[in-house]
Design a protein around this nucleic acid. Structure first.
Lengths: 140, 140
DNA sequence: TATTGTTATACTCTATAACTATA
DNA sequence: TATAGTTATAGAGTATAACAATA
């Protein structure tokens, strides 16, 4: 299995792959603790920042709009989200978290242990260095 | 939305979340280019490192063994993987990549652009720092 | 005509439980 | 009896295509 990438970059990519795997597991576990699927938790987390039209949720999640219908249906059936009419355009439905949904979204974020465990290994200075490197990588 | 985490750690976690999102998209895109689902690509990538029993694949992917049957079925139908008997235990089936599967796995890894784009922003020294910080975080 | 959200359909992934063939 | 792999089943996510209401 030869590769065209230099060993250093290759190792960084592998390490990032490991981070991705751990983060993903943590996210799914946190969602499951609230009896939510990963997709449901992602939509709820998005709406907790700002209510938005169904179509915009699909754009943010990079999936087809038709999928959002079912996910919001299930969140609505649990009383975590509601659909509101958009006064400006009667075709649009705005999805918004209920108070219960907002609480769940906050709980969900706080129960993401990922921050505590791997990050606790680093000093504040190291975290600053890491932050700056990640910002540069992501063009932020 | 109050949080109990300090702003620095919070930002690092958010940045890591962004990295996770981009990496995941890249992975799915690379898999789709080869007409594979993400799960199929992950199994193929695993077997490219080393053939292994069905049950061990499930352990590595942290899912139920029954799911692996279908994924390997589909990879086998495409001629990318084959099931071999284990001489030591006739209950066991070893899943192994075919030559075609090995080629696909290598192509797949090389077409993971994630390495080139975000990482290209960093100098070799910065990549070394990033590698060491990630190693520390992951306890490697 | 174009757009928003929905429905219908088909496929994949996932967990659970029951089955088979070995051990 | 215990284990490896499979099958059956049900729920969820996904893309595609077609549809109703509205713009």
């Amino acid at each position: 299995m030869p590769s065209r990438m230099d060993p250093l970059s290759l190792e960084v990519v592998e390490l990032i792959g490991t981070v991705v795997g751990r983060y993903y597991e943590e996210y799914e576990r946190a969602a499951a603790e609230h009896s939510l699927t990963g997709a449901q938790a992602r939509v709820l987390g998005l709406l907790a920042l700002e209510p938005m039209p169904m179509r915009q949720i699909a754009q943010k999640l990079k999936c087809e709009p038709s999928n959002i219908t079912g996910i919001v249906d299930r969140l609505e059936a649990r009383g975590l989200v509601e659909r509101r009419p958009d006064p400006a355009d009667r075709r649009v439905k705005l999805a918004a978290p209920t108070p219960d949904g907002l609480t769940t979204a906050t709980d969900l974020r706080d129960s993401l242990n990922f921050a505590r465990e791997p990050l606790a290994e680093l000093s504040a200075d190291e975290r600053t260095v890491l932050r700056d490197l990640l910002r540069r990588m992501l063009g932020a």
